[in-house]
């Protein structure tokens, strides 16, 4: 039971941030595409803004790996 809960927790640790990141990137991406169409010189800034939410899912990944290693 404990193993199952750990596995579920690991899945949630990466799954929820992944969904949150996807939502944030979708919003930023659509706004960014519009901005770049108007001002191509902002493409660098847009890539950075688009990349910022990814950190959350990376941190989620670290947490999930820690849990999986405990499981092992």
């Amino acid at each position: 039971m404990e193993k199952a809960l750990l596995a579920l927790a690991a899945a949630l640790a990466i799954g929820i941030p992944a969904m949150a990141t996807a939502y944030a990137q979708a919003k930023i991406g659509s706004a960014g595409a519009g901005t770049v169409a108007e001002k191509p010189e902002t493409s660098g800034t847009m890539i950075i803004l688009e990349a910022i939410p990814e950190t959350i899912v990376i941190l989620g990944f670290v947490v999930a790996i820690m849990m999986i290693l405990q499981l092992a």
Partner: peptide, 12 residues
Amino acid sequence: LGNVLSYVRIAA
């Protein structure tokens, strides 16, 4: 500190 942890993406 967050920036340092962000490099975990290389492994991921």
